[in-house]
């Protein structure tokens, strides 16, 4: 199943600390004011990124926490502090949100630009949930640049069903829709990276 790749990645010198589930009680600790507003809704170019997180029965789960990390509209990766105390002007590229009681999440953000010429722009997503023993990573690709999507090495390594789970849908009002299925029907492709152990 896993592709032979990056075999040249050096081994770790120290054994990594294990992850554990976020549990049910993060709600008073991790969310913060404007955590899901990477930009103000009134800013030109502001985009709604939203969707639903479901379990293996197709049931929305009400206790997941999501984080996104992305480049700005020009494809620049920013390194600016201030995410936890949003001033409404500084784009830090990172946001967090807890899903609501019906498993729905919303971020207000920008369409990321291509970080390199010809690359398919994507947003990095991390999923935490009660019942999920370790975090999951995936990518949210923008749907527009079909040529870049066709040339993307990760998408090329997936079958059509898997590819579909990683490309967001552009809705009529400009919103990006990206649903997350933890298991079963339409299960989202989740990623591993080199140097995890």
């Amino acid at each position: 199943m896993t592709q032979a790749s990056n075999t040249q990645a050096p081994a770790l010198k120290l054994a990594p600390t294990p992850g554990q589930t976020i549990g049910p009680f993060y709600g008073y600790a991790l969310p913060f004011d404007k955590d899901n507003e990477l930009v103000n809704q009134a800013r030109p170019g502001a985009v709604r990124l939203h969707g639903v997180v479901t379990d293996g029965a197709g049931t929305p789960i009400p206790d997941a926490l999501l984080e996104i990390w992305q480049a700005d509209e020009a494809g620049n990766i920013v390194a600016r502090d201030g995410s936890l105390v949003r001033d409404g002007y500084t784009f830090t590229g990172w946001g967090r949100t807890a899903v609501d009681n019906v498993g729905h999440y919303t971020f207000t953000t920008l369409n990321p630009g291509a970080t390199e010429e010809g690359k398919a722009p994507f947003i990095m997503l991390t999923v935490f949930a009660r019942g999920l023993l370790n975090r999951l990573f995936t990518r949210i690709y923008l749907p527009e640049d079909t040529a870049a999507l066709a040339n993307d090495p990760l998408l090329a390594s997936l079958d059509e069903a898997g590819r579909k789970t990683l490309v967001a849908t552009r809705e009529a009002d400009g919103s990006l829709r990206f649903d997350i299925s933890l298991q079963g029907e339409g299960e989202t492709v989740f990623l591993s990276y080199p140097r995890e152990s």
Binding site: M1, T2, Q3, S5, N6, T21, D55, G56, A57, T59, I61, W69, Q70, A71, I77, G93, P112, T115, E116, K119, F122, I123, M124, A129, R130, G131, L132, L133, L136, R139, P153, L154, S157, L158, G162, L182, Q183, G184, E187, T188, V189, F190, L191, S192, Y193, P194
Partner: peptide, 20 residues
């Protein structure tokens, strides 16, 4: 609680790029 909340497919290997 993990029964319905874990992916059944193997994690897919990605070569990290740019934002990652």
């Amino acid at each position: 609680s993990s029964l319905l909340r874990h992916p059944t497919k193997n994690l897919h290997h990605a070569d990290p790029e740019t934002i990652e």
